[in-house]
Amino acid sequence: MARYAMALDYKNCIDCKACEVACKEENGILLGADKQRIWVGHGEIKGEYPFLDITSNTFMPSQCQQCETAPCESVCPTHATYYDENGVVRVDSEKCILCSYCMVACPYDARYVDDRTHIVDKCNFCSDTRLVRGETTTACQATCPTKVRIFGDLDDPESEISQVLRVREYFTLKPHLGTNPKLFYLT
């Protein structure tokens, strides 16, 4: 029993996309940007040359926010989307009817149709690949060359993520929606 979460030191991201590749490799995700569980977004550079605003070009790694009050879970008509014992929002492929309501309801565009299993899939913190083998890291975290990602148990006060969140300021995405995301962006 744990309460897994991730902190992202997103200003260290160099947009190498190694995390996207590692995720696809580890979890057997099909190729293509429409099929990705995680991605790195970046904004257009604002302003006109030579007065360019380079801060607008931030790289923003993102994925399922592992909400504690997940809209995709509450709208699912068959409980195919559920919270596992570690607080990870996961999908039971047996129960998914592919109604796509979770795709419409997720505020983070984190869900997509997996053409291998024909269900609406999402990031599950490598639960059925790495965590089930007893590892304590996710593929995206392990591969990141600039150590953007810190994955761990919020219920363990000694975990790296708990320690970081005690001393660093952070924000979450779309907090006004009340979804209580467990992805924390460090500032």
Binding site: S74, V75, P77, T78, H79, I97, C99
Partner: peptide, 26 residues
């Protein structure tokens, strides 16, 4: 449009999502 209509019939009964408007509607 529903990807798995037979699964829907089965799990609508066996695993009802009572917080889902789609479940209630159907």
């Amino acid at each position: 449009e529903i990807g798995h209509p037979v699964t829907m019939v089965i799990y609508n009964v066996l695993s009802p999502g009572l917080t889902s408007a789609i479940w209630w509607m159907g």
